[in-house]
Design a protein around this nucleic acid. Structure first.
Lengths: 113, 113
DNA sequence: CGTTAACTATTGGGTATCCGATACATTTAA
DNA sequence: TTAAATGTATCGGATACCCAATAGTTAACG
């Protein structure tokens, strides 16, 4: 899986933020990460990095719901997905592709012609 | 383009609502639709249909920003995307695929193996 | 003709996400 | 040693989206 920087720039016509918990769980399903690392990874994809005021409360909530757990490791606090979180994100990714897949397919088909 | 019903069921682990304006513009870029038709189309994809209290204020806002226009046609009010809206959604779709494309790619690659 | 169904639109209260600011802690650099 | 950088976390106010309820209109149905 490529680690390249996406350099996306959010469009002006509509707010495309949101689904933060989904993105957090998805990223953590790949590997554990600390808060700012997560923010940076989200920023790579979305073009804007969530502020501390956004990311930490979201992490706190996911932790409260036992979808992730945290562990101080050196100078950082790494967040790990739980088994419950892993099951949840599996379902969520399936849903995501069902709900939005057509948009993506449309662009791929346009790219082929 | 298929018109099949997706029957998606929203996951419990994270809130995946949002980006309503984006979805509205995208659907309207295909063809004009009236309010409840839009709600139904969104419901087909997301498994839950936005309520009138959600869809109409969003349409009102998009209209206010000149991204769509409305026209009473028979018993319904059809919404049409403007040229400005069409340009906007083009950009937004590009952004969407950059920001979230990896999730689709991941699932497609998993489906191939 | 009366009833039902479908559509339009608003309102009030709620929620996830968001920004910006702030404060603190620890490591790194000067 | 001090300053800068990096990370953690909270708080207050804002925004897009959300639900449920309500009310009105009009076409379709019985």
């Amino acid at each position: 899986m490529s680690k390249e920087n996406y350099d996306a720039c959010p469009p002006k016509c509509c707010d495309m933020r949101g689904m933060l918990s989904f993105l957090i769980l998805w990223l953590l399903s790949k590997r554990p990460m600390y808060g700012q690392e997560l923010a940076k990874e989200i920023g790579k994809r979305r073009g804007t990095k969530p502020n501390p005021g956004t990311i930490y409360p979201a992490l706190k909530e996911l932790k409260k719901r036992s979808l992730i757990k945290s562990k101080k490791e050196g100078r950082v606090t790494n967040y790990h997905i739980t088994e419950e979180g892993r099951k949840g994100i599996q379902t969520a990714c399936e849903y995501f592709c069902k709900a939005f897949g057509e948009i993506f397919q449309e662009r791929m088909e346009a790219a082929k012609s």
